[in-house]
Every structure is written in C-alpha cells, then in structure tokens.
Amino acid sequence: MSKPHDYQTKAIILSKTRLAEADRIITFFTPEHGKIAAVAKGVRRPNSRMSGHLEVLDYSHLNLARGHNLDIITGAQTLDSFLPLREDLTRGAYGLYAAEIVNQFAMENLENRELFDLFLKTLERLSYQDNLEIATYYFELHLLKEVGFKPEFKECLSCHRRLGEEESVFNFKSGGTLCAHCAQGKPWSFPLSFGALKVLRMLQDDDYEQVKGLKLEPVTHEIEGALRNYFYYLLEKDIKSASWLDKVKKMP
C-alpha cells in the first residue's frame, strides 16, 4: 500500500536554509519519522502565515504533503516557542548547541520517540530551570544512549575490573572506560578522575530530578572535555556551536 499523500506530526525545528525567492528548507525532528527536511513555501515574506511557527527551536504541529523529492509543509502551529531561549543569550546558546547535536545524530525517517522526548524535555529545562550545565550533560549522555553510543563507565572494558579510586581513561574507540593498565598505548583516550567518573555514572543512571542539584565543580571541565571529544570522535568533526556557547558562558 502506498503512503498517504498528507500527514501530520509534532516537530522541533532544528535548522533552516533559504530556497529560491521566498521559500525555505526546514529541517526538523519528529517522534515518528526522525529527522525530516521539507520545503516551506513563501515563509520569508512578512505576511506568511507559517513563518513564525517554523523558527529554529520552535515546537510545532506540522501538516505536510509528500513531494517528489522533499515534502512540502502546508500548515504549522506553534505548541511551545520556548521564549526564554529567544530572550536570554545564554539559554539560547545552550538551545542551539542541543539542536545541532540532535541534527548531527538523528537519522532521517527513523522513529526515535525516546530521543524526541529527551530533546523536548531538555528544551523545557533550558528554558525554565537554572542548572543549564547539568541539563546539557544529562542530555548529551542520554542522547548517546538513544542513538546507540552509550558509553560504559562502570568497569574496564578490557579486563572487566570494576573501576574504583584509581584514575581511569575514557577510551572512545572502545566506547567506555579502561583501567590505567589496559589503557596503555591506546589512542583516543581521555583521562578521568574518580570524581568525574562518579558524576558521569550518576548522570547516566539516575533520573534528572535526582541529579539536577549535583555540584559539578571541580570536575566540570573533565566532563565537558570527555563528552566533546567523544562527539568529535563519533562525528569526525566539531560541534560548531560549542565555541559560541563557550564564549557566551564566559561573558559577565
């Protein structure tokens, strides 16, 4: 049976590019169809009925018609526009960073409801809560799980010894921790203190409500470094908006 000509979906807008005189190609993430790129006609004109509902980080209800090449967005209605992400420089920079990571990891036309729910919850946290760093690390670790790259932090992946107080390394190639002995000479290794390892385990295993009050200092830089480098290893490129996020975080 052929697919229906029209369909509806909830979506979070990830990015947009200009097309022709007044159109855009909008890339968005949906619970049922994964990532989709579709054409929105006329949305660069000021009196477009859809443009305000298709801005990056909008959570919207979309109507689409199947096209030969790209689908066409025929209607859009905002469900939540996460105003704090637009009105606060730091929150906005975190939001864009999260959107870029989803854009990089999400597969086209592949259902991933767990990742959608995680992303939506993260945008809510980044909009209305104060612990933006924890919300972001929590999001990054759980995103890795949902896209099949969940790192192992409990034991050494080589000798299966449970890791304790001694320093261990996060070996990207193995997808998790190795003890100092097994890690010798292995490239793509990022050293982790026991403190950082404990925080990573908690962020990965516990509910957000339990970890949101965690004190990250003094291991913040280790966690950030470990995750950023792991992303670089997996994607073979940097997350572009990370440098903007770093710059904004340093601003008074």
């Binding site: 000021p46 009196n47 009925r49 443009s51 305000g52 509902h53 801005e55 909008d58 905002t78 939540d80 526009s81 105003l83 637009r86």
Partner: peptide, 16 residues
C-alpha cells in the same frame, strides 16, 4: 503583527 494578516495565524512569540 504585520499589516494584512489575521490574528488567528499569529505565532505565540509574536502575539506575546
């Protein structure tokens, strides 16, 4: 709101 549009189609951010 831009001139010539209808309130019904306004997005939340603009309306706010």
């Amino acid at each position: 709101l831009p001139f010539g549009t209808e309130l019904e189609y306004a997005d939340n951010a603009t309306l706010t």
